[in-house]
Amino acid sequence: MDRRQFLKLLGLSPFYSNLLLCEAMAAEKSLVAIADDRDYSQATIKAINALGGMRRFVRPGNVVVVKPNIGWDRSPEQAANTHPLVVRAVVSEALRAGARKVKVFDRTCNDPRRCYVNSGIEAALRGMKNVDLKHIEGERFKSVRLNGRTLRDWELYDEVLSADVFINVPVAKHHGLTGLTLGLKNIMGIMGGNRGSIHRHIDSALADINAVVKSHLTVVDATRILTAHGPQGGEPRDVKILNKVLASSDIVAADAVATMLFGLKPEAIATTVAAYRRGLGEMKMTGIRILRV
């Protein structure tokens, strides 16, 4: 963009909506990798490698937090939690890239012990060195100044705040209030306090949190997706097997592409739109480059 173009745009900007300005200013396309494999570990590794490999995100000696969705006391087939093989693959890639420590946790909705066991994630990570699957401890939530549009401040988990790398590993599924729950909503697992109370302005509140806690890498588990009765499911007929894993360093783009797997437009998910408007990432297909592997 040369000066002339820029001035023209600036002059015209009051007539355009914020949205268009964002689009025009977008310099580079966001890359989203979609890997397709029946072997979920392979799918995960392929998707990460398509972005340039884990070494792009994790430096030797880093402390890495991997945040899957372990919210519910449901089995892997029920598609309410991130698949244990996807979690395991992300964790071992991080270790291979030289991570000093990989911490895995989620603030669960059901009993944390049952969630960790029945999601299969506890068993999947058992015996791995330098990996901590931890239960949330209330005292570790720290009040963080967000200065967001909806949330002035909120309690966030200290291990996320102090980690070198934050990897967001949501499962793609239906949600009663937000339509779908993906990476942007998965961030709720690091929130303390009365989380339910943000439901009244959830889109904007989630953008506030995501603006402060950046997901360096988002890996969306779409190996099987829950198409209805989310976020818990429980009905086998609501589960659709896709054998796909998505990865992107742009959380909004990852969510936008994952939305299309449900046959929906990214604009249909208010959470994604709110984050996009906030400039947290790309939502428009014109600004996203999809790499299928």
Binding site: H175, G176, L177, G196, H199, R200
Partner: peptide
């Protein structure tokens, strides 16, 4: 809007 109860209801 709220609907936290619906979200948590465990009945499939």
């Amino acid at each position: 809007n709220c609907i936290v109860c619906e979200e948590h209801c465990p009945i499939p």
